[in-house]
Design a protein around this nucleic acid. Structure first.
Lengths: 333, 333
DNA sequence: CTGTTAGCGCCTTCAG
DNA sequence: CTGAAGGCGCTAACAG
């Protein structure tokens, strides 16, 4: 009753050719007579044949899987990267296989090993921090590897992202250019988020280059969130330091800061200017759109996949693609 | 120079057993002498052996892949479901393989076919709407299938979610109970989001049962978003109908509505009460936490995986798991 | 408790 | 332009 699922052999018999020919038609490889091809194609359709990917992978020792390793899904930034990856994969036969590390390098290593067991065509991961073992696995494997988000370092094969250091620098320049002279910082824990730290570094450097310094700073424990942004800004303002502008570690925190100002009756930006990072929708939907930096997450994901698929061989030299960033003027700074 | 990647045969030789024994140790299957097992394990570790999943899948005609089909990644709700799926998969050897349909059933069918080509252990998808072909593929395949989010219908195998009709009903009851008598609705396009429609239906029914009706309603074209919520509420209020409370199609829309009130100088809930759906963090970070319904997305994903993995065979009767919902009182209604 | 024997379905290599 | 042969690495079924 279960109709036996068709294999290459079934298609071949029906089309009166060898299995090999069918395989060639499917993979668009080698010369095929037009007439033969159409005969094969109609046999495939007639049977509703779908190739068994496991068999294909085993025989060719490489699969149509793209391994994707993300630090988190709760930060909307990474689903957006994933969207870009999906968009680029949509018209191909590749499928993403996903792992989430929770910002834990050992977890990354475990996931990497599971993913490599599928002999994926490429691995996409985040940042430059990996365990020794992870690095070794990646290097002993000639498959392509993309490291996303950050470009302030040398990748194994390909890096796609933006300079967080530069982005941090520019946010300070923006505020200084607008005449703010008492600039503070509100952020979250850096240990898991090296990029937030790089932005902070750039920010500090820019203030220094402008003859200023950070007048006050507060960081919460744990990751970024709107609630944490609200509470951490409240903390900082409780210290009564004179502050006229705040750079936040990202938009989540900044939106939280905005909420605090609303609740506390502070006018933004007259009483306090706010500046974020990422350019999330939620920031742009505030009564006054958030001044921030757009970080093109979708583009990062899409570009990575496009670049990886364009060339199956790992290039001799590591390659870096800067997807850039833009300042969103907004109305809060 | 490339150290040949070790296979079962290498491990077997080193441990002085047959390949089969190694395979049994790895899969924890069949009786193995303790001494043999530890010899095999140390050989595995010594070689850094990682099983080739493609070969395993081919031989067993079933893989450690869980196919996951989501309608979208831009709505934070689905990444949250994905988190739940990941959490339940974390300590297993299963890997999720993900597809995104953009709310298009034909796209779902294509993704389903690609996923099935990997002979996954199970398929997790969303809602009850599928093409005929998709249904046939799922039914001819004895693998387990979960349909998430919604339980207002009969699933193929397993449904995990909540009754959106009931949730809509309860939101109206809440508002009526609070004394609101001029209740409106602000939503987005239902054609792609059947669940939003079900909530609306329940909402309408509850008002009717209470001898009331929807005094005004506005729906934007396209999906839900904070910006759309802001603009659509503005539209509705522009009509000058008397309204004292609004039920939104979800929290994104409701947060947008809150933003409109802030900008327009309307006091919430004195001038206008707002009620959402989902219980997103952002709603709870508003100066007044949003009154809404918590929909337990993480739990839905986790429960689905746990239930699917608990039993490899599809049960005789379709099964429904209600993950429920809670009213979050909040301060906006 | 362990080993032997056959494939799983496809792709690669080599002939023709 | 097409076909035949062999094997990818693992697991299932059966012996012993």
């Amino acid at each position: 009753m279960q109709p036996e699922t068709p294999t290459l052999a079934h298609v071949a018999r029906l089309a009166n050719v060898s299995e090999n020919t069918v395989s060639r038609v499917i993979r668009n490889k080698g010369p095929i007579a037009g007439e033969t091809r159409s005969r094969v194609i109609s046999a495939i359709e007639q049977l509703g044949y779908v190739p068994n990917r496991a068999a294909g992978s085993l025989a060719s020792s490489s699969s149509l899987i793209i391994g994707v390793i993300l630090p988190s899904l709760s930060n909307i930034v990474f689903p957006e990267v994933l969207q870009g990856i999906h968009a680029a994969l949509a018209d191909t036969s590749y499928q993403p296989m996903i792992g989430v590390t929770d910002y834990d390098l050992l977890q990354e290593q475990k996931i990497l090993s599971s993913l490599l067991a599928w002999q994926p065509a490429a691995i996409i991961t985040t940042g430059f921090d990996h365990t020794e073992t992870s690095l070794r696995m990646l290097q002993n494997n000639r498959i392509r590897v993309a490291e996303l988000m950050d470009i302030d370092n040398t990748p194994i094969d390909l890096a796609v992202g933006l300079s967080h250091r530069k982005a941090g620098y520019e946010s300070a320049r923006h505020l200084v250019g607008r005449g703010y002279r008492h600039i503070g910082y509100v952020g979250h824990d850096w240990t898991a988020d090296r990029r937030a730290f790089l932005r902070y570094e750039g920010f500090r450097q820019a203030l220094q280059d402008a003859g200023q310094s950070i007048v006050a700073e507060a960081r919460c424990a744990g990751g970024s969130s709107t609630l944490a942004g609200r509470d951490t800004l409240a903390d900082l303002l409780g210290r009564k330091t004179t502050v006229d502008a705040i750079v936040f570690s990202n938009d989540d925190m900044a939106v939280g800061g905005y909420m605090h100002c609303l609740g506390a009756g502070l006018d933004v930006p007259e009483d306090l200017a706010l500046f974020g990072f990422n350019g999330l929708d939620i920031g742009q939907a505030l009564p006054k759109p958030l001044s921030t930096i757009r970080s093109n997450r979708f583009l990062i994901g899409r570009t990575a996949v496009e670049t990886l698929l364009a060339q199956a061989e790992r290039p001799a030299e590591p390659h870096i693609i800067d997807t850039g960033f833009d300042i969103i003027e907004g109305a809060t700074a």
